[in-house]
């Protein structure tokens, strides 16, 4: 499975998550975001960048609480919460933020 973008084929899993972490770049992230109906703002990017940094160190997306705490640092206490996270990514951090960040979909009992 996969999709064509800017003349390149991107391999994905069944849900459209990039298979190869290294395929990711800002343009393709923008493209995936578009498909999800999301217009990337600076706040969106900050979440995505944090997810990618965390993943590169721990090989898994961070616990939601860790992400929220980081958002508190990035955006201040009014926006460092679940509600704002869902405002940015209405389908949820795992379904949308990880997808746009080019990370695999978290599965398990989550």
């Amino acid at each position: 499975m996969g999709f064509e973008f800017n003349g390149k084929f991107y391999e994905t899993d069944d849900d459209g998550y990039l298979t190869n972490l290294d395929d990711w770049n800002q343009e393709v992230a923008n493209y995936i975001a578009q498909q999800e109906g999301i217009e990337m703002t600076e706040s969106h990017w900050e979440v995505v960048n944090f997810l990618r940094d965390y993943y590169s160190e721990y090989k898994i997306a961070p616990m939601i609480k860790i992400l929220i705490k980081e958002m508190k640092k990035m955006f201040g206490p009014e926006k460092g919460n679940n509600a704002y996270l869902y405002q940015l990514y209405p389908a949820g951090p795992a379904l949308q933020a990880c997808k746009i960040a080019g990370l695999p979909k978290p599965t398990g009992c989550v």
Binding site: E57, Y58, K59, I60, P106, T107, G108, C109, V110
Partner: peptide
């Protein structure tokens, strides 16, 4: 199940 390594 999550694939969480010891470091994570």
């Amino acid at each position: 199940n999550l694939g969480m390594n010891p470091k994570a």
